[in-house]
Amino acid sequence: MRAPEFWRRAPASPMARALAPLGALYGGAASARMSKPGARADRPAIVIGGPTLGGDGKTPTALAIAALLAEMGERPFFLTRGHGRRAMRRPSFRVDAQIHTVLETGDEALLLARRAPTIVGIDRAESARLASDLGATALILDDGLQSRRLEPDLALLVVDGGYGAGNGLCPPAGPLRAPLRRQIEAVDALVLIGEGAAGEAVAERASAAGKPVLRADVAALPCPLAGRRALAFAGIARPEKFFATLEAMGVEIVGRKSFADHRRYTTRDLAALEREAERLDATLVTTEKDAAGLCPDRAARIAVLPIGLHFAEDERLHALLRRALTRAS
């Protein structure tokens, strides 16, 4: 699904205002769901949520927190539903990135599994038990704030500086997974990624509610793409962020293709991209998440833009993590 453009615009457009009553019903149901207590895992649970329906930066945040926990001597496991996979109802299982395919796990699970042990399962409590049995000392959920399947020991709300809360309404009128005030109430801190007035507005609301704001930036990791011609493609919630990062690195984008989030690329898709890249005399380049779902033969012919999340004040996040680990002990 691609988010409608009017979801971004604030104040709300006439279309958004017309749909606002339906959005209020959606928001009410989401608020009620968030008020229900979740199951308590026997390992510290760190829940990372985004206020909107995609593109806030949850996955880079989860990866950065896993790295910090590992530095602290912990053994973090990711828990994920495996969005877009087949057989959603099968029991929870540990992902093996060398064996499992995107059809079995979803694309994000394969990406996560290359950084830390990852459990895929629709039942978060069952996944938590499996992770504990396999030696996890901490659990990271890169979603789950609004579902409340597990009670968090630390809950973070990740906000994109350029997008913020969109028009501030819930679907179908806007992008919010639940009313913003309810989401801010439910977390321990807000992570603001990048700059922008929309994100700053959310940060101000979080600060007014007594929630600390952790500032971070996404940066491309070393990648020999600067100065090269590229045909860039992405199947993510906000592909414009990917294109902007490439341009900031000095990559000459001579073509760009946007697909729906969690796109399962077909042989036909990739053949067409390869033909277009050849016509443009350009290198095909995509995101880590998109590349995770490609077969190895295809992936080997496509450049990947790796990114990392840098926190402006690591120590504040370390303190929150230490408190969560202590709270759960």
Score class of each variant (00 low, 15 high):
M1A: 15
R2W: 07
A3D: 06
E5R: 15
E5V: 13
F6L: 08
R9P: 00
M15N: 03
A16C: 12
L22D: 08
G23L: 11
G28Q: 11
A32K: 14
M34C: 10
A39W: 04
R40D: 03
R40G: 02
A41F: 11
P44F: 03
A45M: 05
G54W: 02
D56K: 08
T59E: 02
P60R: 01
A67D: 11
L69C: 08
M72P: 00
G73L: 01
P76T: 10
F77W: 03
F78N: 00
F78Y: 02
T80G: 04
H83D: 03
A87Q: 15
R89F: 07
Q98D: 14
V102S: 14
G106K: 10
A109G: 13
L112H: 12
T118E: 09
I119Y: 03
V120F: 09
G121R: 07
D123H: 10
A125D: 07
A131N: 12
S132H: 10
D133W: 08
T137Q: 03
A138T: 01
L139V: 01
D143T: 10
G144A: 03
Q146E: 09
S147E: 05
A155F: 06
V158K: 14
D160L: 12
Y163S: 03
Y163M: 09
G166T: 00
N167G: 07
G168Q: 02
P171R: 08
G174R: 11
A178W: 09
P179C: 10
P179L: 12
P179F: 09
R181Q: 12
R181S: 12
R182P: 00
I184A: 05
D188V: 05
G196D: 04
A198K: 01
G199N: 10
A201D: 13
V202W: 12
E204Y: 03
A209T: 03
K211T: 09
P212C: 02
P212F: 00
V213A: 04
L214N: 04
L214M: 05
D217A: 13
V218G: 03
L221K: 14
L225K: 06
A232F: 10
A234C: 11
I236F: 06
F243W: 13
T245F: 04
L246R: 06
V251K: 02
V254M: 06
F259C: 02
F259V: 01
D261C: 08
Y265D: 08
Y265R: 08
T266S: 15
T266D: 10
A271T: 12
E276T: 09
E278T: 14
L280H: 11
L284F: 07
V285C: 10
K289I: 07
G293S: 07
D297L: 07
R298N: 11
V304G: 02
V304T: 15
H310C: 05
E315V: 10
H318E: 11
A319T: 15
L320A: 04
R323M: 04
A324T: 06
L325F: 07
T326S: 13
R327I: 02
